[in-house]
């Protein structure tokens, strides 16, 4: 009966013999990358504007991760359409240019905090050359709400 060490043995064999393992379904295909990066600006929750570059085909969540943008709680489910913490708000003309929205994205978007008419999930929006120069806004988070409304006082009943 194979044990864990047999398992690791196999894995070693796989690695050593350089077999091509085709991860049929787990490969995350990105559109062909060109050298030409796309410039995107994010307006953070505190109103600060950060401008970064991303590759065409990357999702806005990829950009946030790769550029190490510090947005608390953003992309909790790593782009697997189980949260909606990657919620971003677009300008209307940009919103209309974005690719089609799937049913699954709409379902998760319904659960997003601070939803607007031009909201999308950042993990589902991929960069294209035509999006050069766009600005997206990170909506206020639940945590921000709580901080401003939820304090302690020294007086007691």
């Amino acid at each position: 009966m194979p044990t864990d060490s047999t398992g690791s043995h196999i894995i070693r064999m796989v690695l050593e013999s350089h077999f091509l393992v085709i991860r049929q379904f787990c490969c995350y295909t990105r559109a062909l990358r060109s050298e030409n990066k796309v410039t995107v600006s994010f307006i953070n929750r505190d109103g600060e504007k950060v401008t970064v570059k991303g590759s065409p085909g990357d999702s806005l969540l990829d950009v946030v991760i790769e550029q190490d943008l510090d947005i608390d709680g953003f992309g909790a489910c790593e782009g697997t359409l189980a949260c909606s913490t990657c919620h971003l708000i677009f300008d209307e003309d940009v919103f209309n240019q974005l690719g089609p929205i799937t049913d699954e994205e709409m379902d998760m978007l319904d659960l997003a905090y601070g939803l607007t008419d031009t909201s999308r999930l950042g993990c589902q929006v991929c960069l294209t050359k035509s999006l050069e120069g766009i600005t997206v806004r990170v909506p206020e988070s639940v945590a921000d709400m709580r901080e401003s409304d939820f304090g302690t006082t020294s007086s007691s009943s």
Binding site: G7, I10, V14
Partner: peptide, 12 residues
């Protein structure tokens, strides 16, 4: 197959 080959999880 993917789990067994990539070994991100132990066999157990």
């Amino acid at each position: 197959t993917c789990l067994l080959v990539t070994k991100e999880l132990t066999l157990e």
